[in-house]
Each structure stands twice: as structure tokens, then as C-alpha cells.
Design a protein around this nucleic acid. Structure first.
Lengths: 105, 105
DNA sequence: CGGAATCCCTTGCGATACTG
DNA sequence: CAGTATCGCAAGGGATTCCG
């Protein structure tokens, strides 16, 4: 039997990645639209505000789940978001979560 | 491509089940010790207080993820906790989460 | 266009004490 | 034994405004 310590060790990290109201949703959108831009992401994430999107992207970037390219040195700027390799490894997990949710009311 | 709506529909429910500081850990313990009692659960969940355990169990029960048997009509009481069928269907998901966490520091 | 700064409000978390 | 009742704090979420 797996001990509680081994368990909570692995799981708490994932829950940190998924924690919060928006991050998982944002990940999914970026996955489906690699290179998506800030304002597109904002439009696709219904109900989110600037600050919450910024904070979520900040956190995910610092966790190396996503990365972004800044293009241009004067306005209008461009910023394109991608999943990293680590981020892509989360995709099957997200799909499993989604499937469970759809099958259990 | 899957739409954002289909996605958020399924996932938000799962994240609700897993939300909070203790619920996932409690689920894992109950899974490993079917029929576990309140105070045993409290001892195994390091750092939890009465009220947080009560609240977590309440939520999970109302979501039909766990169930409990109350035994006896006068003190000392017994209360035994189990995973429901729905709760058991979450086990593979929990294991996937744990595996990812262990493999991604 | 892609953010950051500020301020506020709500929610979750928890210590302590008590009860059937 | 298995909870409940209070009260308080801290963190997360968000509206608004402003900036390079």
C-alpha cells in the first residue's frame, strides 16, 4: 500500500498547478490555439478580467507550464503563448479530468 | 476541435470535487481504508482540525463521493466512511495526478 | 496591444471551546 | 466518539484606473 506521505507529495504539486479559478481553463485554450495572443485569450476566457488573466499567466509561466514570445519593441506589441513540454505532458491528465466530469453529471 | 464550453463544463465539476486543502487527501485515505472512522481519519490526515474534517466530509457526502454508516443510538457512537461507486471511479484519476506530480518535481 | 497598480470584498481556513 | 458553534484571520478574486 502506498503511504499517505508518498501520495500527498505527488498530488499537492499537481493541485498547485491546477489551483485557482482560471488556470486550467487557460491551459486548455492555449493547448487548442498555440501562439494565441493576450486579448484573444481574454475573449475566449469568458468572464475573466485583465488582472486575473495576467496573474494566471504569470504563475503558469513561472511554473514552466507555458511560455510566451514578445514580438516588437514599440506598440503595438505582440505576445504569443505556448505550452512548454511540461505543459503538454498535462494534456492527457486534463482530458481525463474532462471525461470524468462529463460522465458524472 | 473541442469547444471551450464543452471543456469547461466537464472540468469545472471535477475541480469542484478536488477543490480545497483536504478533500483529495481524505479521499485517498478512505480509499485505502474502507470503513475508516472519524477519529482515525483525523489522525491520518496530518494537521487537520475537527471542523475542517467535518466540513470536508460533509461536502464529499453531499456530492455522493463518499457515504457513511452511523452505528449505535447512544454514545459511544461509530461512524464508518466509504467511497461510493462514483467515488471509486475517481481513483484512477487520483493516481494519474499523483504520478504526474512525482515525475515533474 | 498587453499589461501593472491600487483598493476592496468575499471565501476558505482554522483555533478554541462545547455537546448529544 | 463524532461531531457543532463561534469568531477571527489571511488569501484569493475582482472592479477600476492607468501606463509603455
Amino acid at each position: 500500500m502506498q503511504t499517505t506521505d508518498e501520495w500527498s507529495c505527488g498530488v499537492s504539486k499537481v493541485m498547485d498547478v491546477f489551483a485557482g479559478k482560471w488556470k486550467l481553463n487557460i491551459l486548455w485554450i492555449i493547448y487548442n490555439e498555440e501562439g494565441i495572443r493576450f486579448n484573444q485569450l481574454k475573449n475566449r476566457t469568458v468572464g475573466i478580467t485583465n488582472i486575473m488573466l495576467t496573474r494566471s499567466l504569470e504563475t503558469l509561466t513561472s511554473e514552466k507550464i507555458i511560455s510566451n514570445n514578445l514580438i516588437g519593441n514599440k506598440p503595438p506589441f505582440k505576445s504569443e503563448y505556448y505550452l512548454t513540454t511540461k505543459g503538454k505532458s498535462l494534456v492527457p491528465l486534463m482530458q481525463s479530468l474532462n471525461d470524468w466530469g462529463k460522465n458524472n453529471l
